[in-house]
């Protein structure tokens, strides 16, 4: 049971962070399908930081620096979306999809190159960070507390305040609802959209780092993040683009995702004798059902996905 809660909380943290990222981008008016790619970019940054930090660096330094690296990589990678979608009015779905594929391919090529350079016989796409990973964990009576759980809660509060209690957040949301109106009162829509996408890069990057440290084993970069970016989008839609509701949705999805890791520990689940594939499918099936039930009356920002053109009426 403790294990279930532990997995649930860590997966929920991933989904919460990434979904909040998606939430900022969409409130500014840009659909961020590329969250999955941003997660990979952030994960790569964080993993490399963990790998190259000296082995004797303190736990606090490992935690802070790798989060910083993940954030930076996420932001830089999200600029690919920002430039094409905001300045060049590209199809946001197409660019997002390309970013997802690009991130996995680029990370694989890059990591394999590093590994082969160190040892010509090593053609795997994994980064060794087992020891550095321990810095994130604190054992409390059998429960592995992960610093990321705390970080997720803090960022949730920040996101809520930023979005609803500051001038910036309200302006950001105006750009997603009615950019022409926002522009007419002197808000720079392009700048606000850049801010929205970069915030989503920041949060998505951290989310990616959390994802790779959540698993027990090392992570192969060629596998990407297994649709987590899209699960996060489902969480965001289920949460109706509101941070607090997103948090609740993330907990629910985290529960279903963690079942595939721990179902053997529950006698009544193990007795059902379902193949493990069923548990692997569960989060995706649930999200389809949830989407079918909630998408009809969606509170999506009105202008999302539509490139802003100053000259258009």
């Amino acid at each position: 049971m403790l294990l279930l809660i532990q997995y649930m909380l860590i997966f929920a943290s991933v989904l919460l962070l990434v979904a909040l990222g998606g939430c900022f981008a969409e409130h500014s008016g840009v659909i961020n399908i590329g969250l999955e790619g941003i997660m990979v970019a952030g994960a790569l940054g964080g993993a490399l930081m963990m790998k190259y930090l000296p082995a004797d660096s303190s736990a606090a330094a490992v935690v802070c620096l790798s989060i910083l690296a993940a954030m930076l990589c996420g932001i830089i990678y999200s600029l690919l979306l920002a430039v094409s979608a905001i300045n060049f009015k590209a199809d946001q779905t197409l660019v997002g999809t390309a970013m997802n594929l690009l991130a996995v391919a680029a990370a694989t090529v890059f990591v394999k190159a590093i590994n082969t350079a160190e040892n010509p016989n090593n053609v795997s796409a994994t980064i060794q960070y087992v020891n550095a990973k321990k810095a994130f964990l604190v054992n409390i009576g059998g429960f592995e507390f992960n610093w990321f759980m705390l970080l997720a809660v803090i960022l949730l509060i920040c996101a809520n305040v930023l979005l609803y209690r500051t001038k910036f957040g309200l302006r950001l949301m105006a750009c997603g609802e009615h950019p022409q109106a926002a522009d007419s009162v002197g808000i720079n829509v392009y700048k606000m959209r850049y801010a929205g996408v970069m915030l989503s890069g920041l949060l998505g990057g951290i989310g990616g780092l959390v994802y790779i440290t959540a698993g027990v084993s090392e992570w192969k970069f060629e596998n990407g993040v297994a649709g987590f970016g899209f699960l996060a989008l489902a969480v965001m839609i289920f949460g109706q683009w509101k941070p607090t509701r997103i948090a609740l949705a993330a907990l629910l999805f985290g529960l279903f995702r963690s079942l595939s890791n721990v179902y053997t520990g529950f006698p009544f689940l193990a007795n059902l004798n379902l193949p493990s594939n069923v548990y692997n499918m569960l989060p995706y099936i649930i999200s389809l059902i949830v989407l079918a039930l909630t998408s009809k009356r969606s509170a999506a920002p009105k202008a999302e996905g539509i490139p802003y053109d100053k000259g258009s009426r």
């Binding site: 590209a90 197409l94 391919a105």
Partner: peptide, 23 residues
Amino acid sequence: MYSSDISDFISSLIIYLCGFVLF
């Protein structure tokens, strides 16, 4: 020296660039 994934890298780059065709 290299991994075969470089061709995936190139083809995903091409998809990304296709986003600019309209522009």
